[in-house]
Design a binder for these strands. Structure first.
Length: 159
DNA sequence: GCCAACGTTGGC
DNA sequence: GCCAACGTTGGC
């Protein structure tokens, strides 16, 4: 099993939106960056994902979701009415993939950026690098557990 | 709203 | 293949 972090603008799709969706499951579509897409293609059923709210009032990790369906062609790329329509993609050779994610947990507080920066285990984390724009980011098991332990120490979650 | 950083595009 | 221009991301 692998660990990941995915960014979302809560105005578009928040942790509450996922928790409130049918089967608490949503398609994670609209990824239009090749590096992020390549990560999506390596995701496996059951992989654990930190959900991160960006460009909002309370920036940080807000909960956990998991991969409930591994990568498949993102239907939005074929839909001319979609903001994610890609006229250069075609069914024979789909350019973009999606996964399905299922709600696992919402923390009782946001794990803020300044808290994450305190973790030496995250010193090399692309998420914390200035100018980082990657929306799908792998986490090592060590990084994953360091975040969970921080959250437990701050009474954000119970381990 | 500002602006730095980045990925992508397209002319050459 | 280079690289400037552009659009977007994302923290502040």
């Amino acid at each position: 099993m692998a660990y990941w972090l995915m960014k979302t603008e809560p105005a578009e799709c928040s942790i509450d939106d996922i928790a409130g969706a049918p089967d608490q499951t949503m398609r994670w579509d609209g990824v239009r960056n090749y590096q992020a897409r390549n990560f999506i293609r390596t995701m496996a059923l059951g992989d654990q994902i930190f959900l991160y709210h960006s460009s909002c009032a309370h920036i940080g990790i807000v909960g956990i979701v998991e991969v409930s369906k591994s990568a498949y062609p993102d239907p939005c790329q074929y839909d001319p009415s979609s903001a994610y329509f890609d006229p250069k993609s075609n069914a024979e050779n789909p350019r973009w993939d999606a996964v399905d994610v299922r709600f696992i947990d919402k923390f009782n507080a946001v794990i803020r950026l300044d808290q994450l920066r305190q973790l030496s285990a995250l010193a090399e984390q692309p998420l914390l690098r200035k100018g980082n724009r990657l929306s799908v980011i792998p986490f090592s098991a060590e990084q994953w557990h360091a975040v969970l332990q921080l959250a437990a120490a701050e009474n954000i979650i119970r381990l």
